[in-house]
């Protein structure tokens, strides 16, 4: 009920898309972004983004390469300083979005990390860093931490390789360890940068189920960047569609429509729905670009 109807077959759109205006603030908003702009030199990477995220919702961020998805996530995470605009957070335990980033308790899973195969660290040690890695001093063996780590590993179905050397994990296994590292800190907002990108279909599905549970059972707000919205359709509440630094937020039905996408891309695109999948296909002239990023043959 929290979610939009996952059946997206040509359902009539009742509301207009919200071309990202700040007003949708509710009491339950945990994150509110107003007028956010980020530039690299002369290049505008994010252009006056306004959006607000509610408690316990799962939001997909999609868009072509270089659209600014990672930049948006990094700005929210505080990893880069925006040129303009504000990002406000609610305290982990409620209240209006006025708290600082630290009080909000963010979990962040980067797009990729590199790890030497000989690094003397087990996967569970990496998860443990999410628990108390920010504290000074040595860590002594402690039952609370061990339980939290075990729980996080179990949640992402990674218990069986918790003792493996982290540098020798496969891409998909490492991805799950990083998700566990973020979860073990009990974040109220979880930011995931392309957690599905190095996963096969089955593992991607498993990760979607995990974030589904985290958002809809534990009440964590999840922002998840992905190139392909289709694996997320069954779990996603809303979608942020980013193109050329501009963004639209709304339900899939509100956003993934030719009129809305045309205003983002600046040229005609078609939205094709086949067998419960959504493909965004560009004009012949631009077709390549749109196809490359959103067309994934089933």
């Amino acid at each position: 009920m929290r979610r939009e109807d996952p059946e997206i077959k040509g359902r009539p759109v009742t509301q207009g898309a919200a071309p990202v205006t700040a007003t949708a603030t509710q009491d339950e908003a945990v994150l509110q972004i107003s007028d956010l702009s980020v530039t690299y030199g002369a290049r505008v990477v994010l252009d006056q983004i306004n959006l607000s995220i509610r408690r316990g919702e799962l939001v997909g961020i999609i868009g072509p390469n270089g659209a600014g998805k990672s930049t948006l996530l990094r700005a929210i995470a505080g990893l880069l300083r925006p040129d303009r605009g504000t990002i406000r957070f609610a305290r982990a335990h409620g209240g209006t979005p006025r708290a600082s980033r630290a009080q909000a308790q963010l979990g962040y899973v980067p797009q990729r990390i590199e790890m030497d195969p000989d690094v003397p660290l087990r996967a569970c040690d990496v998860v443990g860093l999410g628990f108390d890695g920010h504290r000074f001093g040595l860590s002594w063996p402690n039952a609370l931490k061990r339980q939290a780590v075990d729980r996080a590993l179990a949640l992402v179905e990674a218990s069986e390789f918790g003792q493996s050397l982290v540098g020798r994990l496969s891409g998909g296994q490492l991805q799950r360890i990083l998700i566990a590292q973020a979860l073990v800190s009990e974040p109220s907002i979880l930011l995931l940068d392309e957690p599905l990108s190095s996963l096969d279909l089955r593992s991607a599905d498993a990760v979607v189920s995990i974030v589904d549970r985290v958002a809809h059972q534990s009440g964590v707000s999840v922002l998840l960047v992905t190139h392909d919205m289709n694996p997320l359709l069954r779990a996603m509440d809303r979608i942020i569609y980013v193109v050329n630094g501009r963004a639209v937020i709304g339900s899939v039905d509100e956003v993934v429509r030719p009129e809305v996408l045309k205003s983002l891309y600046g040229y005609d695109v078609d939205v094709v729905r086949v067998r419960g999948r959504i493909l965004v296909v560009g004009d012949e002239e631009y077709g390549d670009e749109a196809n490359r990023f959103h067309h994934h043959a089933p």
């Binding site: 979990g107 899973v109 980067p110 990390i113 860590s139 590292q181």
Partner: peptide, 19 residues
């Protein structure tokens, strides 16, 4: 020890956690 390990392994995550 811990923040150093944290920021050596996953620097961005460590930063988000205040290291």
């Amino acid at each position: 020890f811990r923040p150093l390990l944290f920021s050596s392994v996953t620097p961005d995550v460590a930063r988000v956690r205040g290291v």
